[in-house]
């Protein structure tokens, strides 16, 4: 997964042609840390079909808020720079993320 932040968010996500998912996470978000191994596994499984990135909100709070993300965990899908879906909530699990991936690839 590509690390994105304020320096490269536009280039890696907004200007990307095709589907890209951003995993917004933070070290103090237990649920994010729980989900991380699953997200990495999914990124490997679907690496051929779409792009996977992650954004640590430490230092990138404004970028996240600019994308309408104000809570963790958040998985946001984009296609050709357009936001498709924002998955979030305590109950978010790997299965829901995989369903979304399958929907957009």
């Amino acid at each position: 997964m590509i690390e994105v932040g304020k320096a490269n968010f536009d280039e890696e996500v907004k200007q990307h042609e095709g589907v890209v998912m951003v995993d917004f996470w933070g070290e103090s978000c237990g649920r994010c840390m729980e989900l991380m191994p699953d997200v990495v596994a999914l990124s490997e499984k679907y690496s051929e079909q779409m792009k996977f990135t992650k954004l640590n909100i430490a230092g990138n709070r404004r970028v996240a808020m600019g994308q309408g993300v104000m809570g963790l965990p958040s998985m946001v899908f984009y296609k050709n720079g357009e936001k498709l879906e924002h998955l979030s909530g305590e109950e978010l699990d790997a299965q829901q993320i995989e369903e979304a991936i399958q929907k957009y690839i």
């Binding site: 933070g26 103090s28 978000c29 237990g30 649920r31 994010c32 309408g68 993300v69 104000m70 809570g71 963790l72 965990p73 958040s74 924002h86 979030s88 909530g89 305590e90």
Partner: peptide, 11 residues
């Protein structure tokens, strides 16, 4: 996750 939160430490 757009202003509604259930976890203070997370958000």
């Amino acid at each position: 996750a757009k202003g509604v939160s259930y976890c203070a430490t997370c958000d």
